[in-house]
Design a protein around this nucleic acid. Structure first.
Length: 283
DNA sequence: AGGGAGGAAACGTTGCGATG
DNA sequence: CATCGCAACGTTTCCTCCCT
């Protein structure tokens, strides 16, 4: 997808990554983003589905600024102090007229001139009043993406329960994994050693537990099988520990959409201010 | 009064280095 | 390797200015 060309509606704000999908939406200079790896969500379809759900939540909860608000914002090149109001200056530097101009739509641009030689000194004030009237005719929200409005106005889709929860890292099998089972590794201390299979599981706040199964004692297949079973047991133990420990965490919703929470500490982890304008090269 | 060029601002999109 | 975080580029919107 070339830069600047909108994604298809289903992929609005969603970008394909080698490892999954990334959601990135900018609203009022703030970027909302979250990443959804295939490995973390149990496959491509689930990762995409989660990314779309998260994006829809952002789109619904953070609507674009009203067009009128945007039009009222003073630009740096504004010389009159009132957006949409400017003066026409004659070659000698004398003000010829004050003008109120407002872009309503592609085929409707409002404009009224107040020549100083006709209306006198009140030309500027009249232009400001006219600009205010013109803004009354500007409604709706800023247009951002063809799919934005339909997403924002559509009801939330499937209940979150149908979505697979994010896997913990210990459930993710890396592409470099040699055993086919996450947390199960073959180790050989030295060239002469027959080696052993190791089951290892890490639990935050508790450290790692591991158990080795020697090939010399069990044989290669049996040792591996025992390590896999041990790994499974470790995961169950870990789960029990986390459930016991999560009585506090249970009071907070799992996989909640952080931007919906009015907590700056959470929001800051997924938002960062955009360097609007400042990073843009001169045209 | 009308029209259009120029350009600032905003935001979607992409790339890539850093981090754990 | 997965994820994070940021910078930068291209397009669109629409304000400002100027010319006829």
């Amino acid at each position: 997808m070339p830069k600047g060309i909108p994604n298809p509606a289903a992929m609005y704000g969603i970008y394909l990554r080698s490892w999954g999908y990334e959601v990135s939406i900018v609203r009022n200079g703030k970027r909302y983003f979250q990443q959804f790896g295939r490995a973390s969500y149990g496959g491509d379809a689930q990762a995409l589905r989660q990314a779309q759900e998260w994006r829809d939540g952002v789109v619904r909860s953070v609507p674009p600024v009203p067009r009128r608000t945007r039009a009222e914002k003073l630009r740096v090149n504004n010389t009159t102090g009132v957006s949409g109001v400017f003066c026409q200056v004659a070659p000698g530097g004398k003000v010829r007229a004050w003008v109120a101009k407002t872009y309503i739509g592609q085929d409707e641009i409002l404009r009224t001139d107040f020549p100083v030689n006709t209306v006198g000194e009140s030309a500027q004030a009249l232009a400001i009043e006219e600009r205010a009237r013109q803004l009354e005719r500007m409604d709706g929200l800023a247009k951002l993406h063809p799919a934005e409005e339909s997403i924002r106005t559509s009801p939330p889709s499937a209940p979150a329960g149908l979505l697979a929860p994010k896997r913990s890292k210990s459930e993710i099998r890396r592409s470099t994994n040699s055993s086919g089972v996450s947390g199960v590794h073959f180790k050989a201390p030295n060239p002469g050693h027959p080696g052993y299979w190791l089951a290892i599981t890490y639990t935050a706040g508790r450290g790692s537990v591991s158990k080795a199964f020697s090939i010399k004692e069990h044989g290669p297949e049996k040792a591996k099988q025992l390590a896999i079973e041990e790994r499974q047991r470790q995961l169950e133990e870990k789960l029990a520990f986390l459930q016991q420990d999560s009585s506090v965490a249970a009071r907070t919703p799992p996989l909640s959409i952080p931007f919906l929470l009015d907590q700056p500490s959470q929001a800051s982890s997924l938002q960062h201010g955009m360097t609007a304008g400042g990073t843009r090269p001169p045209q």
